[in-house]
Amino acid sequence: MDKTLEIECLTNLAEGDHRSYELLFLAYHPKVYHFLYGFIKNEEEAYDMAQEIFYKVWVNRKTMGEIKSFKAYLFTMARHMIYNYYEHTLVKEKYTLSRLAQSETYEPEQDMFAKDLALLIDLVVSQMPEQRQRIFKMSRKEGFSSDEIASRLNIHKRTVENHISKALSDLRKALQYISFLFF
Rank of each mutant, 00 (worst) to 15 (best):
L5S: 13
E6C: 13
I7F: 09
C9L: 12
T11V: 10
L13S: 07
H18R: 14
L24G: 09
L24I: 06
F25P: 08
F25S: 11
F25L: 15
Y28F: 15
P30C: 04
H34W: 05
L36G: 01
G38C: 04
G38M: 05
F39P: 00
I40H: 09
E43V: 01
E44V: 10
E44P: 03
D48W: 00
M49W: 00
M49Q: 03
A50Y: 00
E52Y: 04
E52L: 04
I53T: 03
I53L: 05
V57N: 05
V57A: 04
W58K: 08
W58Q: 05
V59E: 11
N60E: 11
N60D: 12
N60Q: 11
K62S: 13
K62Y: 03
M64P: 01
G65W: 02
S69F: 01
F70K: 05
A72H: 08
Y73R: 07
Y73N: 07
L74I: 07
H80A: 08
M81Q: 09
M81H: 08
N84A: 03
Y85H: 15
Y86T: 04
E87N: 10
V91K: 14
Y95H: 11
L97I: 06
L97A: 09
L97Q: 14
L100I: 09
Q102E: 15
S103W: 01
Y106H: 10
Y106R: 06
E107K: 13
E107T: 06
P108A: 12
P108K: 08
M112N: 08
K115W: 00
K115A: 11
D116E: 15
D116V: 02
L117N: 06
L117C: 07
L119V: 06
D122E: 14
V124E: 11
V125G: 05
S126T: 09
Q127R: 14
M128Y: 03
M128Q: 08
P129I: 07
E130R: 10
R132Y: 03
R132H: 12
R132L: 07
Q133Y: 00
R134T: 13
F136D: 00
R140C: 12
K141E: 15
F144Y: 15
S146M: 08
D147T: 14
E148D: 14
I149C: 11
I149Q: 03
A150E: 03
H156Y: 05
H156E: 13
R158Y: 02
R158I: 09
E161A: 12
H163M: 10
I164L: 03
K166P: 01
K166C: 06
L171V: 06
K173Y: 05
A174L: 02
A174C: 11
Y177H: 10
I178P: 00
S179A: 10
L181G: 05
F182D: 01
F183Y: 06
F183K: 07
